[in-house]
Amino acid sequence: MGVLVYTESWNGSFRKSTFEAVSYANETAKLLGTEVTAISLGKVNDSELSKLGNYGASKVVSIEAVKKGDSQGCTNAIADLANDASAIIFSNTYTAKMIAPRLSAKLKIGAINNVVEIASNISPFTVKRKAFSTKAIETTKVNSKKVILSISPNSFRLIETGGSCIIESVESTEKGDVTIEGQETLSGKISISEAEIVVSAGRGLKGPENWGMIEELAEILGGATACSKPVSDIGWRPHSEHVGQTGKAVTANLYIAIGISGAIQHLAGVNSSKIMVAINTDPEAPFFKAADYGIIGDAFEVVPKMIEEIKKIT
């Protein structure tokens, strides 16, 4: 009985969250005394696939013909390989969020998402996960022998093993009842949920024309930009940047909140970030109660200085 890990690629490349999932799968395999098989859907060339070996996959099964937006096709293709697996590991990507629950229902295996730690018990599988929009840590067990786990981004470290993997191409004719027409992606954009640094701004910035400095700060830090809910509701920023309890969850190493008051709904989605910085003119802003570092001051003065200082060290 092995461990399967779903490895997601974007335009033929893997991202950090993929390697985190493989590392997690490898640690789980050690607990079980078994090996890791990775499944890759879509076209990925061999040199990219072989990187999975370095995080602990001993075998990679590559299935080219299946499309990510087709949750039925993806699920069936993975189910065909899941018979011998005691654990199936996913990272928390948009596509994984369609496949993992389907697979759980199809195979009658308990699924747990938002997982933040390696299993504390393997029979039955017991893990810690985030619940109540990060307001709680829940310990959950499955009632099935096997388990499906989806790992919260940036919660499990990468572990390079220096290992290598064999690559096997498998044909699959699995196809669901949808047609994928195409994607529109902004290239070069770092996804908020995976980003290690997120620079976020709120209504304190007064208008969309003032976001230049936010983008610049994010860029020099190699981070993503985000915003509070009202900012996206009024259309200053796209909805895809809305973070918080009803927006995207942030699990960054560094979250910088600029001109954001720190409402409970905002904090709920961002406070599992490791370090939070608040920049706000109002010393009473609730964000200062949640932040690790803060500056009471005007964003329009502080942010340009930050950019200047960071440029000196990078």
Partner: peptide, 24 residues
């Protein structure tokens, strides 16, 4: 298929280190 065993609140943050706005 799953069962909740217990819930905990995440550890409280320590206090915020404030830095003077003239010393970015």
């Amino acid at each position: 298929m799953t069962e909740s065993l217990n819930f905990k609140k995440p550890a409280e943050k320590g206090s915020c280190k404030l830095v003077d706005s003239n010393d970015v």
